[in-house]
């Protein structure tokens, strides 16, 4: 029998996420189709940024590996978490402006969680979030303002953020009321951890390829694997 002290310790550790009784959903997101060549970004308007890049910088709206491994796809639990409330992490999520590009290009955070917008460029940027659900904002971030904190009040998949000074800068933010999301890396893989046993609807979002959902069931501590394949809608054949 577990002692009361140990029970309290386990509840505490579980709450801070150090141990988890749940399983995880892992998988890959692939793009099926001809990979478009990303245009080189012209940063002539901002010599400081041009100088930061030793090699040409390209757009990031569709980055896929040789076998279609899709980077920057946002994967999240759409349904199945019930009414469970998740604490808002104290740690902020960082969006950096470095070399006049957003890093990372796609990120996720929880409602009420701090988004720390950094200005590593040391030049004048403006941060323009264009949400459909949350409140739109357009704020100046002069070179001396190294950090700026913003939060979002409502869940939203996905909201774009741009810099109108440097029109090639574009990033995406996913706001959720839970921490069950991930962004795919270069290998197109993702992992959503700490899930209880149950059935979930999981969705993948990509800025150009749209969304796709799948139903997943996790039994006990066993995880599940979900592989997504995204493609462009086929051109309608002529009659």
């Amino acid at each position: 029998m577990i002692s009361r002290k140990l029970q309290v310790q386990m509840i505490f550790l579980s709450a801070v996420g150090i141990i988890s009784a749940g399983g995880s959903i892992t998988g890959t997101v692939k793009y099926d189709g001809k990979i478009p060549r990303m245009k080189k970004l012209k940063m002539d308007a901002e010599p400081i940024c041009s100088a930061k890049h030793l090699t040409p910088v390209t757009a990031e709206w569709l980055l896929a590996g040789e076998n279609g491994e899709l980077k920057n796809a946002f994967v999240y639990i759409k349904e199945g978490l019930g009414n469970r409330e998740y604490p808002v992490p104290e740690e902020p999520v960082v969006l950096d402006q470095n070399g006049c590009i957003y890093s990372p290009h796609v990120l996720g955070l929880q409602v009420g969680q701090n988004l720390e917008i950094r200005n590593s460029d040391g030049i004048l940027h403006n941060i323009h979030a264009k949400p459909a659900v949350n409140k739109e904002f357009n704020r100046a971030q002069p070179k001396f303002k190294k950090k700026m904190i913003v939060t979002f009040d409502k869940p939203e998949i996905m909201l774009p953020v741009t810099c109108d000074v440097h029109p090639w800068m574009r990033g995406w933010i996913g706001v959720l009321n839970h921490p069950c999301f991930a962004v795919t890396d270069e290998s197109g893989t993702f992992s959503i951890d700490s899930l209880d046993a149950g059935s979930y609807i999981i969705e993948v979002w990509h800025e150009k390829l749209g969304t796709k959902t799948a139903e997943v069931t996790i039994t006990d501590d066993k995880g599940a694997i979900v592989d997504f394949v995204l493609k462009r809608p086929p051109k309608k054949p002529k009659n």
């Binding site: 308007a45 901002e46 004048l124 403006n126 323009h128 357009n138 704020r139 100046a140 002069p142 109108d164 000074v165 440097h166 029109p167």
Partner: peptide
């Protein structure tokens, strides 16, 4: 797409319109 490249009005990034440094007039 530069309509919002200056987020404030009638000032420009806090400067009075005519005193905004020319060196900062980049991009949008």
């Amino acid at each position: 797409g530069s309509g919002l490249a200056v987020p404030d009005w009638p000032t420009t990034y806090g400067y009075q319109m005519f005193s905004f440094p020319i060196s900062e007039m980049v991009g949008g």
